[in-house]
Design a binder for these strands. Structure first.
Length: 206
DNA sequence: CTCACGATTGGA
DNA sequence: CCAATCGTGAGC
């Protein structure tokens, strides 16, 4: 008889590498959201983007400010910001403490449809978390979660690739594509976006 | 202190 | 193509 141990979170040490190194490794990992009633929603990370120091597209490129403060913190911290006055974006802080860098989670493949998702969006369940703004809306992620650690002990955390996923990946069932980042005006040519080819939950192709 | 704009999205 | 919607931060 086997008892199930609690699944381990991704460690701060693993995340303490440069963002462009962590970003592709985070694809295939899982973001877990837990609510006060104990319910959980799990999303397979299928698309990421890296932002690093000396990167003109990075929010911390110019200087340390109230908004980007968390990016200067320890790896594993959660950086959430508001974009266009109506959407939130979630980042995983990476690299050594004081080195401002992070990985933007751009799309998730959810294990189930959240209760509050409207009928319109239910018609395309794989698209519910296809995009950085959409996934935060789907999992009720906002700035109240800014600064928490994603390494365990909070209502939002990261879990490593499952042995099954790793095996499938090794057998070539998943193709990880590297391209340029989306929606930027600076650093447009830097190829720091990664996504799973042929995954319906990826925000955009190309 | 002001004000143009953004790591987006959905609809015209 | 364009509007929604507001916190941020660069510049005066």
């Amino acid at each position: 008889m086997s008892s199930s141990l609690p699944k381990s979170s991704i460690s701060a040490e693993w995340l303490g590498r440069p963002a462009p190194v962590v970003a592709p490794d985070l694809v295939g990992c899982t973001l877990v959201r837990q609510f006060a009633d104990g319910s959980q929603y799990r999303g397979l990370i299928v698309e990421t983007e890296a932002y690093a120091p000396d990167d003109p597209a990075c929010h911390a490129y110019r200087r340390r400010t109230a908004r980007n403060e968390v990016m200067f913190g320890p790896p594993g911290s959660c950086y959430v910001y508001l974009i266009y006055g109506m959407y939130h974006c979630i980042n995983v802080v990476t690299d050594a403490d004081t080195v401002p860098s992070a990985v933007l989670i751009r799309a998730l493949d959810l294990d189930r449809v959240p209760l509050w998702i409207d009928e319109k969006q239910r018609q395309k369940p794989r698209r519910i978390a296809a995009g950085p703004g959409k996934l935060c809306r789907a999992l009720h992620i906002d700035r109240t979660l800014n600064g928490i650690h994603l390494t365990g002990g909070h209502p939002l955390w990261l879990e490593p690739r499952s042995p099954h996923w790793v095996e499938q990946f090794a057998q070539g069932h998943h193709q990880l594509v590297q391209t340029t980042r989306i929606g930027l005006t600076q650093g447009v040519e830097i190829p720091w976006r990664w996504y799973l080819a042929d995954c319906p939950a990826v925000s955009k192709k190309g």
